[in-house]
Amino acid sequence: MNLTLKIWRQPDTSAPGAMHTYQVEGISPDMSFLEMLDTLNEQLNEKGEEPVAFDSDCREGICGMCGMMINGQAHGPEVTTTCQLHMRSFKDGDTITVEPWRADAFPVVKDLVVDRGAFDRIIQSGGFISANTGSAPEANSVPAPRDKAMRAFNVATCIGCGACVAACPNGSASLFVGAKITHLGELPQGQPERDSRVVGMVGQHDHEGFGGCTNIGECTAACPKEIPLDVISQLNKDLRTAMKHGH
């Protein structure tokens, strides 16, 4: 396949960026999208042009490191991560526009690489269960109802990629926060800190400069792990309960 790529190039956070056009030839449909970019980079290197910077690590859809806007869709046209997107989803002769996640809370580091440190800080503000090592009771001493454990697992699959933020017209990270609130809130171990967790995490979310959620639903459609919208509902509910309890 031969393709035209329009890629956002930006030398660093403070420098202005612009779209650049490149041609790549001989792309195999079996390549992953990132392998296609590897091919482009190898070509650029040969020509003496600096390769396009983009993030990836596991390349199997689980670490959450990769992610870019492809033709206006977070992670591209399939419900998966960019590293698991394959070129057979495109046609010979296509023009593909590639941009970084755009959110002021995720500043561009270079080209397609953004800084998602805000997610770590949100977790720091409550996204955990305080259980010091060594203090844990026997694992089976507290049974967890299976349906709740299943729901906890389903939303714990969030990989922290940031596609939800990238896709949300409001630049909100509510899906990410809701997923964590729901994961920990469904488990018996998560109850003692339930109120402070949601208050802390939402506070940090807002402080980081993410937008508010108006329930538009683009986030869940972009989420490679298909985290459902009800986690946002759960987030609101838990927040209300916490406020009732005087937080």
């Binding site: 955990f128 269960i129 090592t133 844990a136 049974p143 994961h183």
Partner: peptide, 20 residues
């Protein structure tokens, strides 16, 4: 002890119907 620790942290391990 590892399993105890992880469960206490909220790791959502697979469970049986009885919740264990």
């Amino acid at each position: 002890n590892i399993i105890d620790q992880c469960v206490a942290q909220g790791v959502p391990f697979a469970r049986e119907y009885g919740g264990l």
